[in-house]
Design a protein around this nucleic acid. Structure first.
Length: 303
DNA sequence: AAACACTTCAACCGCCGCTAG
DNA sequence: GCTAGCGGCGGTTGAAGTGTT
């Protein structure tokens, strides 16, 4: 980390002897550029500058703020961390459901997905997808882009999320989703069961909503991303993005959101003791038994 | 207690599209 | 029409924290 914090050249490979005047000047400028983790002082510099001058051209902003950072770096730091409305903390069940649904529809269009999750950044969603969803795909030993995994999400994972959200709301409505309810997977042609699975060519193909159950869709349309959370500066932030009707109001209790998720002092960052907001059980979506059952189910279809 | 394994996420990189000159 | 500069985006990396052996 310390090596990172020191000033380094962006063109470390260039041989100074071969540079002309302007290149030397550029080299000199690059020499001053800082990379790696931001310091508190830099954060303050950037926040103060934006508070006084607003956002603008990032390269000029970096210079104006007296930061030895690239404009890109400033932009990233601001958008992903310093912006007052950035939500931190665990992704809620509703957000998880939304991410799954939107990813089914758009694939890895993280920024587009993030637009529908107020306060969440594309980087955060991308990280969640990689660390959580892909992990479970790995557990099920299938490609995250395969139709197999997409159908698992659609027919098992998402209904389960809906159930949990309903349970959380104290609703009496239940959605029955069992392994038996899992349709012969994926478009499962009536071909006698002999099929081979290959990952989709295009991860964003999917069709999404129309393949979802009614209860899922109503849940999604009912989803109101109105939450209160605490941003990285400890400020209380209200987010309201009414997507459908209904009055879902989940008030986040931890200083870092639903539950502390590694941003507080002494919090658990790695490992699996984060209370697993990711669908629930201690290890994640599936228990060992469920994984086994799913695998058996897939095997029975010759997958 | 130490070494190793695993997880998370901030930050960087490279590419692409847009736009002003 | 060309080009340089810039912002935005998705993919990737690696430091650091935590769990496990």
């Amino acid at each position: 980390m310390d090596g990172f914090s020191s000033s380094i050249s962006a063109n470390s490979g260039t041989i100074s002897g071969t540079l002309n005047q302007s290149e030397l000047m550029e080299e000199e400028t690059n020499m001053e550029l800082r990379r790696g983790p931001w310091t508190v002082e830099e954060d303050l510099q950037l926040m103060n500058y934006i508070a006084n001058h607003g956002e603008g051209r990032w390269n000029l902003l970096a210079q104006g703020a007296g930061l030895k950072r690239t404009g890109k770096s400033c932009r990233l730091r601001w958008l992903n961390y310093l912006r007052p409305d950035v939500r931190r903390g665990n992704i809620t069940l509703e957000e998880q459901l939304k991410i799954l649904e939107l990813h089914t529809r758009w694939g890895n269009r993280w920024s587009k997905i993030a637009q529908h999750l107020p306060g969440r950044t594309d980087n955060e969603i991308k990280n969640y997808w990689r660390t959580r969803v892909q992990k479970h795909a790995k557990q099920l030993r299938c490609d995250v882009n395969s139709k197999l995994f997409k159908d698992t999400m659609r027919y098992i994972w998402m209904p389960r999320l809906v159930e949990r959200i309903q349970a959380q709301r104290g609703s009496t409505t239940t959605t029955t989703t069992t392994l038996e309810a899992l349709p012969p997977l994926c478009g499962a042609a009536d071909d006698g069961g002999n099929r081979s699975y290959t990952p989709d060519e295009n991860s964003s193909t999917a069709a999404s909503s129309d393949s979802m159950g009614t209860s899922q869709m109503s849940m999604l349309s009912d989803f109101t991303a109105e939450t209160s959370s605490t941003n990285s500066h400890g400020m209380q932030v209200q987010h309201s993005s009414q997507i459908g009707h209904g009055g879902y109001q989940q008030r986040l209790t931890s200083p870092y959101g639903y539950a502390d998720h590694g941003h507080g002092l002494g919090s658990n960052q790695g490992g699996q003791l984060e209370g697993d907001m990711w669908l629930g059980s201690s290890e994640g979506v599936w228990s060992d038994e469920e994984i086994w059952l799913l695998q058996q189910h897939y095997l029975s279809y010759g997958l």
